[in-house]
Amino acid sequence: MLGEGILKGLAETARNFVGSYVSKERLTTVEYPEQRIAPIEATRDFPFLVYDGKDWDAGLRCVACQICEKECPPKCIFIEKSKDKKPDAVGKQQFYPARFDIDISVCMSCQICVEVCPFDAIKMNTEFELSTTDRFGGLLLDRQQLAKSNEYYHEIHPTEASGVDARLAAERAAAEAKAKAAAEAAAAKAAAAAASSAAKPAGGEA
């Protein structure tokens, strides 16, 4: 019968219309500024710099190797390497970024900088409320704005962050073990040298 489908359709929309007032599960809308859904763990938008410890400036993991700057497809990262070195979180002397800017109006959230970073210093953020009244300066984030603590990283990406921490700890432990071994070897060598020098006091190593 012609017109039957139209009536069925009208009944369907009427059911939805009334249903949206009656049953809550029909209205799936989240009224955003007041209501929020917790972001899922894999969320990412723009990169940030991780620091360890309390002081952001001292604790930055970044050593200004500039790999991310070179790899960035839209070239939104700008790094200026420091002239001097200063101790990092574990006290090792390292270069540090004198300037580290990311233009998030250019960034395309590809995560390549994160993939290539050998120091786990740059990670993806989940902060999305970034609107600003100044579209040039306001979207060019500098070192201080980019720096976030490791605790924050744990907060937004818990699984990933603990993985990173475990790996870093393992690497550090390995490095320490290696250093220890090297030190021991050096000490043994030194001892041996001392012994040999004791045997032959005039000898020495350059």
Binding site: N16, F17, S20, R26, L27, T29, E31
Partner: peptide
């Protein structure tokens, strides 16, 4: 508002 409700939305609020 009506179209919103038919599509299970709130409409302007």
């Amino acid at each position: 508002k009506g179209l919103g409700r038919m599509q299970n939305r709130y409409g302007p609020n």
